[in-house]
Design a protein around this nucleic acid. Structure first.
Lengths: 220, 220
DNA sequence: GCGGCCCTCCCCCGCACGGGGGAGACTATC
DNA sequence: GATAGTCTCCCCCGTGCGGGGGAGGGCCGC
C-alpha cells in the first residue's frame, strides 16, 4: 500500500512540483492539496493522509499553528513534514517544537524529497533525531524568541479583527466601518491597529494587499 | 506548432512544478532544463527555445548576466521570462533593463503562468498594461470583476499612471514610489491624484482594490 | 505656429490615519 | 478568586495623504 501524502503550500507552483516529484514514485500517492492551513484540518480528516508535507510560512494560518491543531485535535494524526525555503528559518524550530516530525528544504533534490517522505512515513524523525528535537524544544522557551512569537500571533486574527479587515478590503474608511459595525470610530481604530500589527502592515493599503494576496478576500 | 520553453532554475522542485504546469498545455512544450546560468547559453543554442523561463537568483551566473549574454551574443535570441519569488525584487528591474521581456511571480496561479508564457511567446511584453489587461480579460469573471475592469478600461490610465498604480498595489508610499521612479514626491502625488480621479476612488486603498478586482494586478 | 497631452514640480490646507498610551466590562478557563 | 483574552472607548500627537490650483517643458499632430 502506497504512502498517502497531502500537500500544503500557498504556492500552486510548489504544489505542482511536489506532486510531480512524488507521483513519479510507485509507492507514493498524493491524495490532496491545500493552499492554507485553515483548509487543511477538515481535509486531513477527510482523506486521512499518512504524511502532510506542509509549508511553514502561509497566510492567515501558518504551518506551526496548523501542526499544533492537527496534533491536538486528532487521535491518530498524520506525520508532519515541514517544507521550507530557508535552512535557518526560526519558524522551523517553532514547528518542530509544535510536534512536526521533520523538515525539508525546497531546494532539495527530488531524490531527497522522496527519501524524506518515505522516512517520515516509516516513523523516522528526519534530520532531527530526538536530541536535536529536544534542543529545538528548549529553544524559544521562556518567552525567548519574541520575533517568532510576534509573527506567530499575526496569523491569529480575532473574529472582530477579521471582520474589520474584510471591510477595509472593501474600501471602507474607519468611520464607515464604525457605522457598519455600530461601534465608535476609536474602537475601529483599535481593531485596525491590531490588524496592521498582526499582519506586519504599515498602513491599511498594505493590509488589504495582504488580504488579497493571501486569499483572505478573493477578487470577483 | 507548440511554444518551446526552456526552464532555468536552481531548484529542481521549481523546475518540476513549471514543467508540470506547462506540459499540461497542448500548445506548450518544455524542451529542456538548466540549474544555473552557465549551462544555459550552450543549451539555448542547441535546443532553440522560443521562451526561456529564468530565475533571477542563481548560483554561478545569475539571471541578469545570463539574459545580457544571451541577448548580446545571439542573432535571434529567445524571449526571456523572468521568474522570481518576490514581487519587489530589485533584481527583477535589473533583469528587465537587461532586456528581459516580462516577469512572473513563482506564487502565480498555474493559469497565469501559462498565459504569461503564451503572451511572451507572441512577442508581447508583460510590462505593458495592454497585455496585463488582456490577461485579466481572459480570466473572465472568475479572475476579475466586470465592473471594476470596465472602470479601469474607461479610466485610460497613462503609462506613468499605470506604473504608479502598480507600485501603489505593492503597498509603496508616495515617497517610496518617488524614490523608485526617481522623481519628486509632488510628482507622485499628481499621478496618484490622477489615478484616484480616473478610477473614481476616494483613496489609494480603494484604487488598489480596483486594481485587484479588475485583474490589473493578480493575487498569488 | 499652435493646441493638446503628458510628465514634472510647486504652493496651501484640512483631515483621516496610525502610533502610543490607558481603561472598564465581559467571557472563559483554571 | 485569579488570569487571560477580547471588545469597547478614550486621550494626545505627528504626519502622510488627498483636494485644489497653478506652471513650465517636451512631444505630437493639425
Amino acid at each position: 500500500m502506497p504512502v498517502r501524502v497531502l500537500l500544503v503550500d500557498d504556492e500552486p507552483l510548489v504544489r505542482a512540483g511536489l506532486r510531480a516529484v512524488l507521483e513519479a514514485q510507485p509507492d507514493i500517492e498524493v491524495v490532496g492539496e491545500a493552499a492554507d492551513g485553515a483548509t487543511v484540518i477538515p481535509l486531513v480528516r477527510q482523506v486521512r493522509p499518512d504524511v502532510v508535507a506542509m509549508d511553514v510560512r502561509m497566510p492567515l494560518l501558518d504551518g506551526i499553528e496548523t501542526t499544533r491543531t492537527l496534533l491536538r485535535t486528532m487521535t491518530d494524526p498524520p506525520k508532519i513534514l515541514v517544507v521550507t525555503t530557508f535552512a535557518n528559518d526560526e519558524y522551523v524550530y517553532e514547528a518542530l517544537r509544535a510536534g512536526a516530525d521533520g523538515f525539508l528544504l525546497k531546494r532539495a533534490r527530488p531524490a531527497e524529497i522522496v527519501h524524506a517522505v518515505r522516512l517520515i512515513a516509516e516513523g523516522e524523525s528526519l534530520l532531527f533525531p530526538a536530541s536535536v528535537r529536544q534542543l529545538a524544544a528548549e529553544y524559544g522557551d521562556g518567552g525567548g524568541n519574541r520575533a517568532a512569537r510576534a509573527r506567530l500571533e499575526r496569523a491569529r486574527l480575532t473574529e472582530r479583527e477579521s471582520e474589520v479587515l474584510r471591510l477595509m478590503a472593501r474600501g471602507l474608511s474607519n468611520a464607515e466601518i464604525a457605522a457598519r459595525l455600530v461601534v465608535g470610530t476609536e474602537t475601529v481604530k483599535s481593531h485596525v491597529s491590531a490588524v496592521l500589527g498582526k499582519l506586519g502592515a504599515r498602513d491599511r493599503t498594505q493590509a488589504v494587499i495582504t488580504a488579497y494576496e493571501s486569499g483572505f478576500v478573493a477578487p470577483g
